[in-house]
Nucleic acid binder design. Structure first.
Length: 713
DNA sequence: GCCTAAGTGCTTTTT
DNA sequence: GCACTTAGGC
């Protein structure tokens, strides 16, 4: 089989380039993954050992996908090469060099939840008011600093206000706590290898020899640490192939710097640059829409991405009355599509995870199978986190964070007092909390852990997990509760066992250590419940790299998308726009864009303007559909009226018009309505409220509202 | 130490 | 709407 068969000239050129730096600027849908995978296959075909190849992606999903495609091309010869995310690559390096880095063998990797817990604890110990200094903000600042490779020492020099002083203070303590607990956070997985490589040239050289051929996907999304890490590794042989697209840089918020890709030529002499500009994915209409949006970014290199596919259908744009209407529209359209397509051809994309729930409800009611990708993490569930904390503590008794989490789970009558007593003993003797336990109810707990510790290597993983569930009392607690909630938790624990089972099946006998380390980097639960034919729901960030024939882009309102937090920064706004570009370019055949006139957000009804991104799309490409309103003199069915208040705090306007009950009115956002009641405000007549019935596509809704944006008809 | 009720503040996106 | 925190009664 000729692996070069289906490539165009530029793609072929990229594949055939073996030695020396190569930069592939690959527009959306231009066959980027194809180039990467074929190139790897070609390298191996040309006699380069798979052991010498390192390919780095951003998500586990992308890594899996890439592996699969290479296997398809050249079979399992490819098994020996390293395809992983930056973080799992970092983990590998740390695992191979933990001693030099000052950790012991049973180190654990903590997730961002745990690191937040650590920050909160530090604030408490230092008597810093978490209401004044937001723990999340502090954690995220520390993470940013770490990714910028700024140690506390370096940061000290630039601290300029109280918040930063607090950050510095917490940062120092945070690092020492992690070290004491023999645990690393995600950021350490990038920084520690860099530290190692800088301090130990011989070790660096070993890895340079090992990974002579390096491929980096989504190079525009690398942050300082990732950039440094690659640079160190590629320095000797310069056989680095970076693939990326500046227009798809969407991780600025976590320190990614798209300029890394622009500087590639400067960093690596004699770089060969290849542009991939033909899009094989989307119809002309969709590509034009994407281009018309991204064109509004000032900070970009103009490029010419084109499609030779058919013109295609126009983009459907539906401006719904409210979120329920928006959901109904989407559900309706999905039903229509499902007549001649698979559910798996359809994706619903939103800006924030919080938006997923209402679509989930709608799909459940309509009996449409769906899967949510990302969002509330399987491993983030309480029962799973607790079980994991047990496993971690059994594995690493230095892990104070895990101990505190579960010493009283299920309830054993151990409270704050006992823990602080333990903490002071531990502090005094310079030992861990676990080691400090010597009496009382705590000792019973310790004995359970000791017993489990002794058994951990004597049985298969799944059996051991069962044992932990039994001995800890977790299972019994949920079983005796007999509520739906408890049943779900038990089910999740069973699910966790099947994760372990799959892991064992794949790798043979595995140690608790390997299992824990492996699991710490898996964040998305997509692979756990493999639903074959289902509509996908995910954030736009999560959809990067994927494609679907039918795409619903929902919630296209100002404040939501672009998100309220990014409205005041040109940089962030451009990132939002790139995000929109990513969303549109996922679509192969037909796209649907929706928004809602009233949106239930944070518990109140809000009214948001239409997203600027919709306005940036050439109107000729859009097919507008709007919600119907009701006719003058139409009878209102008062039996089925839902009454809702709109957040009217900003909506007062001077009142000149005298409305009367029964008047027909028209409102910019809600459409036609009828005045049902006038609610006077005696203190301030300009603040008179009206109770108005508005007709929405699925029924009548009553809103209490001011006069703003309202007129008589 | 546990439980409940009431109060508070906030929510972008991910490894 | 929610998760999270706090106060107060048991």
């Amino acid at each position: 089989m000729d692996i070069l068969e289906n490539l165009n000239d530029n793609q072929k050129e990229a594949v055939l380039h073996i030695n020396g730096p190569l930069l592939v600027l690959a527009g959306a849908g231009s066959g980027k993954t194809k180039v990467l995978t074929t190139r790897i296959a070609y390298l191996i075909q040309e006699g380069i050992s798979p052991l010498n190849i390192l390919a780095i992606t951003f998500t586990n999903k992308a890594a899996m996908e890439m592996k699969g495609r290479i296997y398809k091309l050249i079979g399992y010869t490819a098994r020996d090469m390293q395809i992983s995310t930056f973080h799992s690559f970092g983990l590998r390096i740390v695992k191979e060099n933990y001693e030099y880095l000052g950790y012991s063998k049973n180190f654990v990797v903590i997730d961002s939840d745990d690191s937040l817990t650590v920050v909160k604890k530090i604030l408490k110990d230092k008597n810093i008011d978490p209401n004044k200094f937001n723990p999340r903000a502090i954690r995220s600042k520390i993470s940013t600093l770490k990714n910028e490779l700024k140690t506390p020492d370096i940061y000290k020099r630039e601290v300029s206000d109280v918040f930063e002083e607090v950050v510095l203070d917490v940062y120092l303590k945070y690092q020492s706590i992690l070290q004491e607990n023999n645990s690393l956070d995600f950021d350490d997985l990038l920084i520690l290898p860099i530290k190692l490589f800088k301090e130990k040239p011989d070790i660096l050289e070993y890895y340079q020899e090992k990974f002579k051929y390096i491929l980096i996907d989504e190079y525009q999304d690398t942050n300082e640490a990732q950039y440094k890490l690659t640079k160190l590794l590629a320095k000797k042989y310069q056989n680095i192939c970076a693939v990326g697209d500046v227009d798809q840089a969407i991780y600025g918020f976590r320190g990614a710097n798209y300029k890394n890709i622009l500087n590639f030529e400067r960093d690596y002499k004699n770089t060969k640059i290849i542009n991939l500009e033909e899009n094989y994915r989307s119809t002309k209409t969709i590509l034009k829409a994407a281009n018309s949006v991204i064109r509004n970014n000032k900070n970009r290199k103009v490029k010419n991405l084109f499609s030779n596919l058919e013109e295609g259908e126009k983009i459907n744009y539906y401006r719904a009355s409210d979120y329920q209407d928006e959901v109904q529209f989407v559900v309706q359209k999905i039903k229509e599509l499902a007549k001649s397509n698979n559910y798996s051809d359809i994706v619903i994309l939103y800006r924030t995870n919080a938006q997923s729930r209402m679509f989930e409800d709608g799909l459940v009611k309509a009996n449409i199978p769906y899967k949510i990708i990302g969002g509330i993490n399987f491993y983030g569930r309480l029962e799973i986190k607790n079980l994991l904390a047990y496993l971690r503590l059994i594995h690493n008794s230095q892990d104070n964070v895990s101990l505190e989490r579960i010493i009283n789970v299920p309830k054993r009558g151990i409270g704050e007092k006992t823990i602080s007593k333990l903490a002071s003993t531990a502090d005094l003797k310079q030992i861990s909390l676990y080691e400090a336990i010597d009496s009382g109810k705590e000792l019973i707990f310790k004995n359970i852990i000791e017993e489990l510790k002794a058994k951990k290597d004597t049985m298969p993983l799944v059996e051991f997990i069962d044992l932990v569930l039994d001995k800890s009392g977790i299972r019994k607690e949920y079983e005796s509760e007999k509520s739906l909630d408890a049943d779900i938790r038990l089910e999740n624990l069973e699910e966790f066992k099947s994760v372990a089972k799959t892991f064992e099946d794949e790798y043979g006998v595995v140690s608790l250590e390997d299992f824990l380390l492996n699991i710490s980097l898996v964040s998305d639960n997509t692979e756990i419940k493999e639903e074959k034919n289902a509509v996908s729901l995910m954030t736009i960030h999560a959809v990067k790299g994927l494609e679907f024939p039918y795409v619903f882009l929902v919630g296209m309102e100002e404040n939501l998308f672009p998100h309220a937090n990014s409205l005041y920064s040109e940089e962030e706004l451009e990132e939002e726009r790139r995000l929109c570009y990513v969303a549109i370019t996922r679509c192969k055949k037909k796209m649907f864009i929706t928004n809602a006139r009233i949106r239930l957000l944070y518990g109140t009804n809000q009214v948001n303007p239409i997203s600027r991104f919709i306005k940036e799309i050439d109107p000729d490409l859009l097919d507008n559909i709007s919600a119907n309103c009701f006719e003058k003199n139409e009878k209102i069915d008062y039996n089925n009226i839902k009454e809702e208040k709109v957040d009217i705090s900003k909506n007062y306007d001077n009142v000149d018009i005298n409305y009367q009950v029964g008047d027909f009115v028209y409102h910019e956002n809600f459409g036609a309505g009828k005045v049902l009641e006038i609610i006077p405000n005696l203190k301030d007549p300009t603040r008179t409220l009206l109770k108005i019935a508005f007709k929405l596509p699925y029924g009548v809704k009553t809103l209490i509202y001011s006069h703003k944006n309202l007129r008589k008809v």
